[in-house]
Write a protein that binds this DNA or RNA. Sequence first.
RNA 1: GGAGAGGUGGGUGAGUGGCUCAAACCAACGGUUUGCUAAACCGUCAUAGGGGGUUAACCUCUAUCGAGGGUUCGAAUCCCUCCCUCUCCGCCA
Length: 420
Amino acid sequence: MLDLKLIRENPDLIRQKLKARNMSTGTVDSIVQFDVKRREFIGEVEKLKSLRNSVSQEIAKMKKEGSNADEKIADMKKVSDDIKALDDKLAEAENEIDVILRDIPNLADDSVPSGKTSDDNVQFRIWGEKASGDFKYLDHVELGKKLDILDFGVGAKISGSGFPFYKGKGAMLERALINFMLDTHKGNGYTEVFMPFLVNRASMEAAEKVPKFEEDMYRTDPDDLFAIPTAEVPIVNIHRDEIMDAGSFPVKYCGYTACFRREAGSYGKDTKGFLRVHQFNKVELINFCLPEESYVQMEVMLNHACGILEALNIHYRVVNVCTGDMGFAASKQYDIEVWSPAENKWLEASSVSNCTDFQSRRAMIRFKRDKKTEYVHILNGSGLATSRLYVSLIESNQTPEGKIIIPKVLQKYTGFEIIG
RNA sequence: GGAGAGGUGGGUGAGUGGCUCAAACCAACGGUUUGCUAAACCGUCAUAGGGGGUUAACCUCUAUCGAGGGUUCGAAUCCCUCCCUCUCCGCCA
């Protein structure tokens, strides 16, 4: 969430940033108005509470001395009633502010290109070359079927469409990718963690996923637990409600989880095979750092994610995501896209975001410096999601006969060099 | 799932209605003393929000003892609901 004080003191800045995100600016006026009310109520109610505290002391003293305090008690009864009424009004104003605040995204950094849709994203880097064999590239669904390593029909039978099923060497390849990525990131200084895949509502709120995106989440009914849409949620919550040691930054974690997304409202769009799924595997990178370091850390994280693709020799590009296409909590976002020779297009495989203090303010993750408490900056990046990476990998490394050559670095993880 | 115990500041831990709007100790930080180390002594020791201020230091008020309600002039303390942790039993990978 944004800083209420920042909105109060710079409403024009916020309006301008909201416009850049194609959002209406009326919310700013509402917040400012409710904030004025809120502070009025606070002033009034605290004056009354102060009075009550001091008079209660007097009553205690009078009772001890044996004198009659009935009159003061009657007065204070009235004061207490007033306090209760004012507290209710205050809570109402605070709730109104919170409801609006939960709907306002992070402010875009000035280095973010302005634009409305993904078409306005700006290519930032491109690496490698398109697979250019002199034959027709089979797509991953055809390949998977031919080699008997992927069976989307079985996944659909077990769970529904969008739940991939891997088999034999296909399953081993998936496991190899995950292990390779984790080992590489450990080498980059990340602490490996393994964590719950179901989290409580408080954790989802701290990561700013709920209530805004509740429709996109799988939720268990009697326990109100959410299937995580990304490992970002449990990892960010490691330090929730904590004042972190200022000397410890950057604090870096990597971890594998399955990720679950309902993808409500996106039916019929890029639904083939792995292109859009409800469950996928991802190795996530999270970085807690000092505010002044977050944009530098972001470039470092981007390079860590790209390093995986380069080791696997996968053709990719990085785009600087525009204001209109950026994630809710991000102030800046790079998407990494991998090339699919069969689809003849780029597929998003990773997203590296600087969430600045947007999550840490909600999650109360802070550190101390010069006697002051400041909010930590939090970055997240996929390093990477396997599903679309898998598509690019098996498609790009296929032979004219429809076999798949395993990249050198993966061979010690798979235990084989070729599928087919 | 059943039975019991318990949740107090960074940690230990006192506190069953009002000089406790949280004692004491430990840790941490600053200082004094000191050949060095250690010890001793003194001081600081929360978070959030409001108001004031030469808008920095600082002053002041309010809230916070797992969470939320309730009783009361007044709640860490009494009542209700929920959450979590620990121990034992049952079930189970």
